[in-house]
Each structure stands twice: as C-alpha cells, then as structure tokens.
Simulated scan of single mutants.
Amino acid sequence: MAHGQITYVDADPSSNTTLADGSTLQDETHYSSTLNNADGLWNLRSFANESTVFGSNDSGAEDCPRLRTTVTGLEAGTTYNVYVYFWGATGANWRLRAGLENLAGELDGYNSAHTTTSSFATSSYLTDNAGGSDLNPGPLTTATDSDPAIENGGYFSGSVETAEGNRSLYQVLLGQVTSTDGTLSVYVDDLANQSSVNRTWFDGVGYQAVSEPSLTYLDADPELNTTLADGTEMNLTASPSNPEDYDSDASSATLPSNWKLRTGFANDSTVLAAAPAADAPVLRTALSGLTPGAIYEVNAHYWAVDTSQNWRFAAGLRADSLSTGGAQIGGENLAGFDSTLLFINAPVLLSEDNRSLYPTEPWLHAR
C-alpha cells in the first residue's frame, strides 16, 4: 500500500526523550554529554542528525537504561506507521532494541548486518554516500558528493542525514499506532554489555500517516512474473536438470534441488513448493505498473500448516540478505480475515484445509 512522506523526529533529552517510565533524563546520571566511558550512561555524541546521537558500548561493555521518545502534535484517531532510526558502520554489526510498548522483558532486536547466528532481525540502510541503496534503489536523491549525505528529495518531510563517514542510517518499521491523544511513544534500549563492534547508536524516530488499505495480491507465476534471482526464465520440464527447471504434479520424477508447481492448491490453484530437504534456487517475482515516486509496503505471502509442523520460508528485497524462519516470520496468519477488507483485488484465498496464508513483515520500497 502506498503512503505519504515520513516525518523524522530527532531524539533529544531536553525535549522528547526520557527514561522508559517518563522520568526526566539527567545529565551525568542517565547520559553524559561530555564523556564517552563504559559507565552505564548513554553517550550523547556529536554525530548524525542534529549533531546528537545516543551511544552505548562505544568504549566498552555497559548496560544503559531504556529510553522513551515521545512524538506530539499528531492527529487523534489517525493511524501511523512508526519507525526507529539507528546507525551502522562498515565492517561491524551495530544493534538496537526497540518497540512500541514498554515490555517487561527485552525489546525486539535489530542488526545492521546480516548474520545467521543472531535472533535479531536484519535491517537495511536507507542510502549511502555513494548514492542509491538496496532497500530503496533509485528514488532517494541523497547528495552523493558530500559527507555527510543528506536526503532531501521527498522521502522524508524534511532533510535527514543518511550517511556520514563509514556509517549509514538504518530504518526499522516497528508497526502501526492509532493515536488517541495526538501522541505516540517509541521505546529504545541497547544490547547490554557488548564490544564496540556491536555498539548502539540511536538517532531518532519517524511517523507516517497511513492511507486507506490498498493491498494488491499478485500470484507468483513462472510463465508471467517469476524467474530465478538473476532474471533467468524458468523452464517447465518432466526431467529437471538445471536450476531454472521445474516440474509439476504431472511429473513422476522430482529433483530435491528444484521447485515443483503444485496444482489444485492455494490462489489461482497453483503454488511453488520445495521438498523438505531441498535447496531450491532463489526466485524473483517482479511487480509492474506501480506509480513512479510512490512508497510501497511490500509483503511476500506463503502457506503453512497451522499445527504440528513448521513450514519454512525465506524472502526479502535483496537476494543476498533474505529473512528466514518458519510461520513465525510473519506473525499472525490471515485465516479468519475478510479478504475484501485487505485486498483491492479480492477475493484472495486466505485459508484452505489445515493451511493458512501468512504475510511476511512489510519491507519499505520506493519507486
């Protein structure tokens, strides 16, 4: 679905950022504006947007207190996409915990680098000072001949610094909030007691008014829109031997490393399936007919058995950095929803026998 510009709000201890319980931040008690020590205080460093960033684990292992950044002046009753922004550096994996609720346990964690050994979700940088990015290729008009790099082409409602030195700004969509009183809050924490390569640099939050739902479902079809990741066309054959080959239910022989087009199931009565032990090639499904300059949320949809099994799936906007996991990757399944309230091209099949359709968490993409 398409939305408007994102409004960036810089985290500031003097105006909008407190301890998680709302208590005022005290200089040299909860943060330090002059020192950069491993002392359990956030380091208010002179980098990034508004020349301030909350740093932790910069000089050694520490555990800084949880923060709350509150946005005011919103329209009561309006639903907003809510984002958090942190920094990552080349050759390191900087991290952040963040959420929309002050949970008793740990907040969800986010990495700046892809890793298969961490339970933290991998984030994507907005752009770099070489221009363009994998998350939003093309439309960001960041000044590419400057350091720091500034995005001022309309992605945000104002100018936002997105790269500085060997560092890039990372964006996480935390979810949606319907403001009841014209405010919303984001809770942020560090990953406690880490080395400097896993430090936290928290910069600010963002919000974006949500338009009326306008999801469009596109069925993956190897004859129309789905190829290998490099664009190689897929080939239907009874005897698969190459990565681009796939067979169908009519074939008796199936190689475990190839895709199978199952018929009589799911939307449009077709679904691309891989065997449990398969290492099927990465596919690419291309969307066309989008509005130039518009920002879209993009989801992948996949099927999973509701109980006793863990069907697994990997997807993303970058072929070399796919989010992986079982049904939990997308959270709640769509069984029980009315597809006419979700998709403009409804009806869309959301459940079938003991299987349900799951959406991945949305990725942000601009055209």
Rank of each mutant, 00 (worst) to 15 (best):
V71L: 10
T78W: 01
Q5H: 06
D189R: 06
L218M: 01
R97W: 00
E352N: 13
T115V: 12
F54T: 10
P362V: 00
Y80P: 13
R66M: 11
V348P: 04
W201D: 12
I295G: 07
E101L: 11
L236M: 08
S185G: 11
A98R: 04
A250H: 03
T183A: 06
N111M: 04
T216E: 13
P276D: 12
S51K: 13
T122E: 10
F120T: 01
S119V: 12
A304H: 13
D219I: 00
P347A: 05
D21W: 02
S51M: 09
A229T: 04
L169V: 07
Y170A: 01
V305Y: 11
T116W: 02
F120Y: 15
G154K: 02
Y170E: 00
W94G: 05
S14G: 12
A192T: 11
S146G: 12
Y207N: 09
A38Y: 04
I295R: 14
T263N: 03
P137F: 00
Y31D: 06
H365I: 04
Y302L: 01
V282R: 08
V348A: 02
G40Y: 01
D181N: 15
D268C: 02
A319S: 15
Y8S: 06
T254L: 14
D12R: 01
A294F: 07
D268Y: 05
D134Y: 04
V172M: 10
N93M: 06
S288V: 12
L334C: 06
A286D: 14
N136W: 02
L103T: 15
A76E: 09
T183M: 04
T78A: 11
N36C: 08
N152A: 15
A61E: 12
A314K: 13
D189F: 00
W94T: 10
L224N: 11
F86R: 09
E28I: 00
N16C: 09
D108L: 13
A286V: 14
N267C: 07
L218T: 14
D221W: 02
T69K: 05
G326Y: 03
Y187Q: 08
T340W: 02
V188D: 07
L19E: 05
G22F: 03
A346D: 10
A346V: 03
A11N: 02
F337T: 09
A280G: 07
I6K: 04
V177W: 02
T70M: 08
S119K: 06
R312N: 13
Q176M: 10
S123D: 08
D230R: 01
L74N: 10
P243V: 00
S146Y: 00
S323N: 11
T17W: 02
A286S: 15
G175R: 06
T162V: 15
Y358A: 05
S321G: 07
W87Q: 09
L96F: 03
T307N: 12
L236K: 11
V348G: 06
N235A: 06
L364D: 05
A48C: 13
T141W: 00
L283R: 05
V282H: 01
E297Y: 13
E75A: 15
S211L: 12
N258L: 05
P65V: 07
H30S: 09
L169W: 05
T70G: 10
S146N: 09
N242A: 15
D181G: 11
T162E: 14
W87I: 00
W303K: 08
R284H: 04
E332H: 05
L272E: 02
R355N: 07
G330V: 05
R367P: 08
W94D: 10
Y31S: 07
S112D: 09
